[in-house]
Amino acid sequence: MNFAVITFPGSNCDMDLYHAIKEGINQEVNLVSYKEKSLEGYDGILIPGGFSYGDYLRSGAIASHAPIIDEVIRLANQGKPVLGICNGFQILTEIGLLPGTLTNNRQNRFICEQVGLTVENNKTLFTSKYDFKEKITIPIAHGEGRYYCDSETLHGLNENNQIVFRYDSDVNGSVDRIAGITNKQKNVLGMMPHPERAIENILGSADGLNLFKSMLETQKSEVQ
């Protein structure tokens, strides 16, 4: 499987993601600049965490108009897997590939800690290696991670099983303790916790590794 990690000015988890793919699941991976306009040949698109454009205006707002974005939307609409982590999640909501918005944490401060999550849907290409309702530990590191959407959108997310990860406690004021959601087609996942920072026990948790393994396993089963 060949992954693209898209780097924006201010991305800072790009190498963590690169490492997770290269060393975690031994697959091909390249860093691709936000200035590029083609993602031809890639079968997994990863949008890393960080502070694209210094979070100017709103987190993810300026990145959502970068040259590469039209291509990300094109591949997402083709059904290719697209994963946005932290700032990547914020960018995916600003693009409109995922509903809702990430805004300032309820306690209005940056939070950096290991958090407990529950896998709410293990029937996605990102979570097939997890058990349903599995409890996992993955770190968060964000100031603007409070997921917000209106009640109609929330109803739709629940109806369509788009809520994939929930926080076990109310860590940032997110509606319905949402930590990660997919689009309706389930090929685009956005999540605030950092699975790429939880792929080896030496990092404090290896619970994130199964997310990348799930992507790989799904792709292999589709090729066969």
Partner: peptide, 9 residues
């Protein structure tokens, strides 16, 4: 609509 404001919030 496209940049300065996020219509969701």
């Amino acid at each position: 609509d496209g940049l300065l404001a996020n219509p969701n919030i």
